[in-house]
Structure formats: C-alpha cells, structure tokens
Design a protein around this nucleic acid. Structure first.
Length: 278
DNA sequence: GCCCAGGTATAAA
DNA sequence: TTTATACATGGG
C-alpha cells in the first residue's frame, strides 16, 4: 500500500474499500472512539493515533512511513483485495450480495490475539457500549501508563490477580473467565501465536479449554484475533443462518446458531443501519 | 422498572 | 443430547 508523507502524517487515498466507521464501529474491536473533531482514536501496538478521512484521503496523524508500513497497513489489512472477496460473495448468494453492498468498506482488522480474546470474553451476554467501557477500565486499571493513555494489560499482568481485584472493572461474572484465559496464556498452556498456524480444529479445541470460552468466543478469536478466515466456511454458516430463520426453533437453538451465523455474516451482512450508528 | 445484550457453565429433563 | 437457568451489570 502506497502512502504519501505530509507534515500531518501518513496519507493514503480514500477508497470505498476502506471505511473507518464501518470497520471500527462494527463490533470487531472495542478500543476505538469517534472524537468530536471527527477523528477516530485508538491504541494499537502501544501507540495511540488519530485517523480521519478528509478531502479524499485517509490521514494517519503523526505517523511516519516506517510506522505506517510496520503497524498500520498490516492492522487494517490494506494489502488485501476486499473488492475481489465481495465480488465472489456477491456471485455466490443474493443475501451476501445485498450484505456486501451494504457495508462495502468494512475490513477485517489484524488485532492483537490476546486483546481480542479478552475483548470477546467480555463481550458475552453484553452490549457494545458496555463492552467498550469494561475494556477501557481494564486498560486503565491494569495497563501500563503510556503517557495519557494505557496499554492493554498482558496475560502475565492479569494472571496473578485474584477474582475480586476485578471489581473496579465491573465486568461481573466474566472476571473468572478473564482470569482463566490470562493464566492459560501466561503459562503457555494456550499458545496464541502457535494457534495461528495450527490446524483449525486444534486451535478451536485449545481455545475452548479456557473456562468461559465456548463455541462463539472461540470463533471470534479465530476470526478477529488470529485472522483465521477459514474458521468460517461460508456454506456451513449460510445454511445454519437459514435454518435459524425457519419458524419453530427454540430460544436455545436460535441463540446458538443465530449468534454464530451472525458472526460469519457480520462482515458482509447485518442489513440494518443501526449497527453502524456512532 | 423492564428487557436484554455478539454466551457459557451447569443442572435437569 | 437437548433444554432451561443463573450469572453481574447497565444501556436504552
């Protein structure tokens, strides 16, 4: 991805294939906020930046060329041809076509695997505004002070804590789940980096050994934390999604399959505008 | 107040 | 194997 350097920072041409609001506000990440000045602010790799789209450009304020190439281009997956994927999806199924057209600028972030795992543990039976709040308090309480903002606390930082020390985070029953994840990751019992290359079923099985990580959170981590796109074979989830729409399903079945099918379809569907409201 | 949220563990059917 | 409930908290 070619970027141009200006006094403001790194700039790339704006494109319908890269929409900040669609990408950052859709529930795949929880540490970005839209500031009143129109900039999106987030913390990635210990660096806080402001990004905005303006005058046909996406501007990464204060970011140098080297940092852009090493941090931001990979984070936003800028070298991947999403348009080609959308074309393929559109050919495959009319629902996906509609969906792809609905959110054409969404991208699959390459997030830190540990941060993603924690975030999706927190996300269970929860809503996005509160998830963001809990994640923010987790960073503020246990992250390193990076000068006006905090890092996401590593597994080794959380692993020694006691459950009651999570009280200020107000994450409720999820504290014991976060602790289980932290301890397994810190001890190496679950090796997130290794799971990037492991056979997909092996990776899924390893993740679900964590107390509080079930099918859904594991899928989230595979897709959003480990960038394992193959965790979501489209045909399978499409069929499940369709079956969910049929009448006569129990709440259990609805919850189980609707959630997971939605997980896959999320990038390309969720054809309701409310999802992307700031 | 009330409903419910990008679920999971657990007990009970 | 499948289904119902509790779980902590707070947004809308």
């Amino acid at each position: 991805m070619d970027c141009r350097m200006t006094a403001r920072g790194a700039e790339i041409p704006a494109s319908p294939e890269f929409d900040l609001a669609q990408t950052l506000n859709c529930g795949q990440c929880f540490r970005w906020e839209l500031l009143p000045d129109g900039c999106w602010q987030g913390v990635v790799s210990g660096r806080r930046v402001k990004i905005r789209e303006q005058d046909g450009k996406v501007i990464f304020f204060g970011v140098g060329g080297r940092e852009f190439e090493r941090v931001w281009a990979p984070y936003f997956d800028l070298d991947f041809d999403y348009a080609a994927v959308r074309r393929a999806l559109s050919r495959k199924d009319p629902v996906l076509r509609r969906a792809a057209e609905f959110a054409p600028g969404i991208r699959l972030l390459r997030q830190d695997p540990w941060e993603a795992l924690c975030s999706f543990i927190i996300s269970q039976n929860n809503n996005i505004p509160r998830i963001k709040g809990i994640v923010a308090r987790l960073c503020e309480q246990f992250g390193d002070d990076l000068g006006g903002y905090s890092s996401f606390p590593g597994a080794e930082r959380l692993a020694p804590l006691r459950e009651q020390e999570f009280a200020p985070i107000r994450c409720g029953f999820r504290a014991k789940y976060i602790l289980s994840a932290a301890r397994k990751v810190a001890s190496g019992e679950v090796n997130l980096e290794a799971l990037r290359a492991a056979p997909i079923e092996e990776a899924r099985a390893s993740l679900t050994t964590i107390y509080g990580v079930g099918e859904k959170v594991a899928e989230c981590e595979l897709l959003y934390g480990l960038h394992r796109l193959e965790a979501f074979p489209m045909d399978v989830w499409m069929k499940r999604a369709m079956s969910v729409l049929l009448p006569g399903r129990t709440p259990q079945q609805l919850g189980k399959y609707a959630g997971i099918a939605q997980q896959y379809l999320f990038h390309y569907s969720r054809c309701n505008a409310g999802l992307f409201s700031a």
